[in-house]
């Protein structure tokens, strides 16, 4: 079922971006001010090994058994500078500017709903639950642009096993961080009802491709990419991949999802990448690859974003035009 081709991209070969990362900013609050003042990220690691969890710090990763693309990676500066994260503004460069307000430490993920027992997981526990894998995925936005991102994480299914959901749980809902007390640019620029909510059917969530994600380019996620923990569902449009998750609920019926609430004719619950079902306002047949010159950006969009071999079985017998 899975593509077993070994990765040709080593994590060591895809991390040439120290220059992009303002480590001082991320170190703030990580260790004592004194340690930070020494400029000693290395020292911080020696002092507190295994707690290097701030954006831009390296993560211990292993090669993933699931390698899904050997296309050119989208440069780090675009992966982390061109984002949709409406809590921090609607322009693509807003999140990189504003997401510093997101307090990624301490962080817990609450698990509730149809589970044996509700639990709260600390981010450190989550980081150590399974070995962190480097996984290169295509990322296709519903707005018809795309990237190739080397994520870091492990299959969400591994975490779901720890949650002990009941057999009555048919869907998983993800709720993103939202604190009305911190400044949220999206509040003024949109009419969205916060917090951001997304969801998957249980079998989609259990598919090994669905990634519980902690990093990219071998490092802890920058805030604008959904730190400290997010979901990545590579065969669905990007908005299905909820960021900065604080709550996971196991439920019986289809949970409400933010963009579906906003406009149900444009954003369906499934939102699988599908070149044959147009968005009402634009064609989904092609996409613009981020970071390429304007004359080279157009690419053909693939069914299920090219992950059909791994996920098409989930939708056997379903009318994907109706269930868009």
């Amino acid at each position: 079922m899975l593509i077993q081709k070994p990765s040709e991209i080593l994590s060591s070969a895809i991390t040439p971006k120290e220059q992009y990362v303002n480590r001082r900013r991320f170190l703030r609050g990580a260790v004592g001010v004194g340690v930070a003042a020494l400029g000693a990220e290395r020292l911080a690691r020696i002092v507190a090994p295994g707690r290097e969890v701030f954006a831009g710090t390296k993560l211990q990763t292993v090669k993933s058994p699931l390698t899904t693309t050997d296309e050119d990676l989208t440069p780090y500066e675009y992966v982390t500078g061109y984002n949709n994260f409406y809590e921090f503004g609607v322009s693509k460069d807003d999140p990189a500017r504003n997401a510093g307000a997101l307090p990624t430490r301490p962080w817990t993920v609450r698990v509730e709903g149809l589970v044996k027992q509700p639990k709260t997981f600390d981010i450190d526990t989550l980081l150590k639950l399974r070995p962190l894998e480097d996984r290169v995925y295509r990322h296709r936005c519903v707005e018809a642009w795309s990237m190739v991102v080397p994520w870091v994480g492990y299959s969400l299914s591994e975490f779901i096993k720890q949650c002990e959901p009941l057999s009555t749980a048919k869907y998983v809902q993800f709720l993103s961080y939202y604190d009305p007390r911190i400044e949220h640019w999206g509040r003024e620029e949109t009419s969205i009802y916060w917090p951001y909510s997304e969801g998957l059917r249980m079998d989609e969530a259990m598919n090994p491709l669905t990634l519980l994600t902690f990093g990219l380019y071998g490092e802890v996620l920058p805030n604008q990419n959904g730190a400290p923990v997010r979901i990545v569902v590579p065969w669905k449009y990007g908005f299905k991949s909820a960021k900065s998750i604080v709550k996971i609920r196991f439920v019986k019926g289809e949970p409400h999802t933010t963009w579906n609430d906003e406009n149900s004719t444009e954003y369906g619950f499934y939102s699988n990448v599908n070149p044959n079902v147009d968005h009402p306002r634009w064609s989904q047949k092609t996409e613009r690859r981020i970071g390429l010159p304007f004359y080279a950006q157009r690419k053909t969009t693939l069914m299920f974003n090219g992950y059909g071999d791994q996920v098409a079985y989930l939708y056997n017998g379903m009318d994907l035009r109706k269930n868009f």
Binding site: Y78, G81, Y82, R288, I290, G291, L292, F294, Q297
Partner: peptide, 16 residues
């Protein structure tokens, strides 16, 4: 911007 590498940002088509 078109003549400088990366001069039109991440998504040159959309920028234009």
């Amino acid at each position: 911007g078109a003549l400088t590498p990366g001069g039109l940002g991440a998504d040159p088509s959309a920028h234009i």
